[in-house]
Amino acid sequence: MSDPRMKTIWFFVGLMLLLMGALTFLAGIYQIFVPPATHTILAESHPNVWWGGLMMAFGAIMYLVDRKQTP
């Protein structure tokens, strides 16, 4: 991974977490307005919203790590 032209693994980890976090977050927002037919335990805390947000934040940090490591 010392090839300067190659993106580091942290770029891909960041991108993946941003993408999946955004989709999870959007699913949570959607379910606030259109409640699902089946109820899961602790659904009232809207875990897909805050967990999706957390993933996006972590993905952004990984992206910054890549920027710092890329010459």
Partner: peptide
């Protein structure tokens, strides 16, 4: 199945 709502189910399976 017990805990995960939409979005998180996809994440767990992935």
């Amino acid at each position: 199945v017990r805990y995960y709502p939409a979005g998180l189910v996809g994440l767990g399976i992935t």
